[in-house]
Simulated assay, not measured.
Amino acid sequence: MKTIKNIAAVLVLSTVSFTSFAQSVTATGTTLDSAEAKIAAQAQQAGASYKITEANTNNVVHMTAELIK
């Protein structure tokens, strides 16, 4: 049974295109808007959309996003 599950997992993973995985990007700024603008510029340069996955505000804003093609 375990072998069948492993074979099924390998078949599913082998059909997934490795180029479709999201790329992670980061940016910093003084406001949330400035950090998001930097993320948006990186996404536009890559020809992709983006999804913000993390934002942290201490003295500056640090934001992480995934680029989705």
Rank of each mutant, 00 (worst) to 15 (best):
V61Y: 08
T3H: 11
E66D: 15
S20I: 09
L67A: 08
A8S: 13
S49M: 09
F21L: 09
V61W: 06
S24R: 10
L32V: 09
M63T: 13
E54Y: 03
T3N: 09
I68H: 05
H62A: 15
L13A: 12
T3M: 12
I39C: 04
I68P: 00
T28H: 03
S24Q: 10
T15H: 06
L32H: 06
V10Y: 06
V61L: 06
T64K: 14
V60A: 14
T64E: 07
N58K: 11
V60C: 06
E36G: 04
Q42A: 12
K51E: 11
A46Y: 03
I39S: 08
L13P: 00
T28Y: 00
G29S: 07
G47F: 00
T26M: 09
S34M: 09
S17R: 10
V60S: 14
S17F: 05
N56E: 13
E54W: 01
L13M: 12
S24H: 05
A41H: 06
V12F: 15
A40F: 00
A22Y: 03
T57R: 11
V25Y: 06
I7E: 14
K51M: 05
Y50C: 08
V16T: 11
A8V: 11
A48V: 04
V16K: 05
Y50I: 00
Q23T: 13
S34G: 01
A8Y: 06
L67C: 07
A40H: 01
V61K: 10
L11M: 15
T30M: 07
T57D: 09
L32R: 05
S34L: 09
A40M: 04
Q42D: 01
L32A: 11
A41V: 05
A65M: 04
V16R: 02
M1L: 09
L13D: 10
K5A: 13
T19Q: 12
A27Q: 02
I52Q: 05
Q42K: 15
T31W: 06
N58G: 07
T31A: 10
A41I: 01
M1N: 08
T26N: 12
A65D: 00
M63A: 15
V60Q: 13
K38R: 09
G29N: 02
T15P: 00
I39F: 01
A27S: 15
N56D: 14
E36P: 01
E36T: 11
T64D: 02
S14C: 13
K38G: 04
